[in-house]
Design a protein around this nucleic acid. Structure first.
Length: 561
RNA sequence: GCGCUGGUAGCUCAGUUGGAUAGAGUGUCUGGCUACGAACCAGAAGGUCGGGGGUUCGAAUCCCUCCUGGCGCACCA
């Protein structure tokens, strides 16, 4: 049983139980049709509605309205959370919640406090969320900013929904791109001494200014020591630069308020022989073959489009090989039940073959979930700012965070669902006025704090939910507010289930809107005492939910603005 | 060419997994502070849900087809 407080879900289940009971007595020995109990878009149609009479026309052998009449006649609302039923339209049965429900919601929220919204939906399933995992060969870019906000908030949603969550960053500190990184650094280092024209820069090298900066720092440290030791230069300068870059990633992400549980080094997989072991394993399963001097994996037999190289002709394993070993490590060595990878949409070709590879090594590919995220278009004054890693003019994450407040960046990147091609409006994100939705939500919180403070100054304190009669808060605005507050735990579950934390961000905007409407219609101050207390209870409950939601998203919750 | 993914109000996007008259924000226009924070609220206007077929009591949602934007199809990661 669920010990957590999830009022909406509970009430919905109660509605469903009443329906089943009614159907059992009205139509004994008849199989129930596929029906739903849902929340109508217009609350004139009740708090919950069911299509059971429409969907059951065939199995109950009657017209929908007749079925609805018969079912309703068999439902007794006495002692339930519902105050009335209605039959509407073609045969919908609508449930209306009663006073008791609204009181329970506010009472429950204030009792749960900082924990309101948590459920045990995930049943402590061990889930690993890997996100950003930017190459340590250069600074992070705008896409990583979205991936960071997305991954971190998804992890938070899973945590609140009762999963056992690990946030993880994979450091790609092995393989081809590190070799390229070293070659680029070495060339820049040599150019310092011999001139740019005398030393050829690798055609596929990293062009960015940061490579020159690192080479210069290395020169400051060791002078010309390596000019005549070309064989040792590459390793020495890589060993110098790589940790610096990794530290840069850590610093930038910490500034972005992301704290990882695990920084996983790809190199350790090679050192421990895990990559070789996984290739052997595939080999044993008969899933490999040799061609042109390379070892291939029969990916096409496991759902992928075509076969893939595991070990190049030069003997170096591909990233794909180490990625299989890495996920084997997640599932088998560390025992995660689910692995979620947040990738840029440009990696979608990798999805089917990774899942297939999990099946090929005897694991379950369906336990690997990939959240594909579309890249971001940066827009300022209606014009797109293109980013290019090659020209070195990329918009770095650190640059973005220097310009855009963290609250704003995290909020914006979580406003759209992952697969949408979002636009990031730099002008809007920087603006500190009402156009910026993050302030709209924070404003609602600050407003509530102000009301509470003003009342306290007049000697009026909130006496606690148990001491007040919430049913006095009976206007549409008040009821709407309570209903939305009640939906918070379900919204988190939906975000976790659909891997879409943007739902929570949008939820906070809706909550703020509903609160502002309430504020404009219902005075708290200078109101008859009982009603004042009831409305104060609503304010406190709203404050709790905004605080919990924004805290979950790691956005500050100001009391003044 | 094949695959993934999008196309909903002028613009940016929702739409609770097939439900009731398709919704927000923004922009435009009009109202509301000698009242708890006007960083707010109310109202108006704005739609062939890319086009066309199909499935059924019922489609933005599912199927087929066409148009179109983005991305991917390396012994890169």
């Amino acid at each position: 049983m669920n010990n957590y407080f999830n009022p909406k879900q509970n009430a919905m289940q109660k509605a469903d139980m009443l329906l089943r009971k009614a159907a059992a007595s009205a139509y004994p020995n008849t199989e129930l049709p596929n029906y739903v109990v849902e929340i109508p878009s217009d609350n004139k149609n009740g708090d919950f509605a069911t299509n059971i009479a429409l969907a059951g026309a065939k199995s109950f052998h009657a017209a929908p309205r007749m079925i609805a009449d018969k079912l309703v006649a068999n439902i007794d609302l006495e002692g339930s959370v519902f105050s009335k039923l209605e039959i509407a339209g073609p045969g919908f049965i609508n449930f209306f919640l009663g006073d008791g429900y609204y009181c329970d919601v506010i009472n429950g929220v204030l009792t749960e406090g900082d924990d309101y919204g948590r459920t045990d939906y995930g049943k402590h399933t061990k889930v690993n969320v890997e996100f950003v995992s930017a190459n340590p060969t250069g600074p992070m870019h705008l896409g990583n900013a979205r991936g960071g906000a997305l991954g971190d908030c998804l992890a938070a949603a899973l945590d609140w929904a009762g999963y056992d969550v690990t946030r993880e960053f994979l450091i790609n500190d092995a393989g081809n791109q590190i070799v390229k990184f070293g070659n680029s650094l070495a060339a820049r280092y040599m150019q310092i001494f011999k001139g740019e024209d005398a030393v050829e820069f690798p055609e596929d090298g990293y062009q960015g200014e940061d490579i020159k900066t690192l080479a210069n720092e290395f020169k400051e440290l060791v002078g010309d020591e390596y000019v005549n030791k070309p064989n040792e230069l590459n390793k020495a300068i890589t060993d110098f630069a790589l940790p610096k870059n990794v530290q840069g990633l850590k610093d930038a992400l910490r500034k972005y308020r992301i704290k990882y549980d695990v920084w996983f080094s790809e190199t350790t997989l090679h050192e421990e022989g895990a990559v070789k072991a996984i290739i052997d394993k595939l080999n044993e399963k008969g899933a490999t073959y040799e061609k042109d001097g390379a070892v291939w994996y029969k990916a096409s037999e496991y759902g992928a489009e075509k076969d893939e190289v595991l070990v190049r002709a030069n003997g170096i394993p591909t990233y794909f090989a180490s990625d299989i070993a890495y996920h084997y490590n997640k599932f088998v060595t560390r025992g995660f039940d689910i692995a979620i990878d947040v990738w840029g949409a440009d990696h979608h070709g990798h999805v089917a073959r990774m899942k297939g590879a999990m099946d090929a090594i005897g694991l379950d590919g369906t336990k690997l979930d990939v959240v594909l995220m579309q890249l971001v278009r940066l827009v300022k004054n209606g014009e797109q700012i293109r980013m290019s890693k090659r020209t070195g003019k990329a918009i770095a994450l650190t640059d973005l965070l220097d310009e855009v407040p963290i609250d704003s960046a995290r909020f914006f990147f979580n406003l759209r669902e992952p697969q949408s091609q979002m636009e990031f409006d730099l002008g809007l994100a920087v603006s500190e006025d009402s156009d910026n939705p993050v302030y709209y939500v924070q404003y609602a919180h600050a407003r509530i704090c102000s009301i509470i403070k003003n009342l306290a100054a007049e000697g009026i304190e909130f006496k606690g939910a148990a001491q007040c009669n919430i049913s006095l808060a009976s206007t549409n605005e008040e009821r709407e507010l309570i209903r939305h507050i009640a939906a918070f735990p379900d919204e988190i579950i939906a975000a976790a289930k659909n891997y879409d934390p943007a739902r929570i961000t949008r939820y906070t905007v809706e909550l703020a809107t509903i609160y502002h409407k309430f504020y404009n219609v219902c005075r708290v101050k200078e109101t008859q005492e009982d009603l004042c207390q009831a409305r104060l209870a609503l304010c406190c409950a709203t404050k709790t939910v905004i605080k919990n939601a924004l805290t979950m998203l790691k956005i500050t919750v100001p009391e003044y603005m």
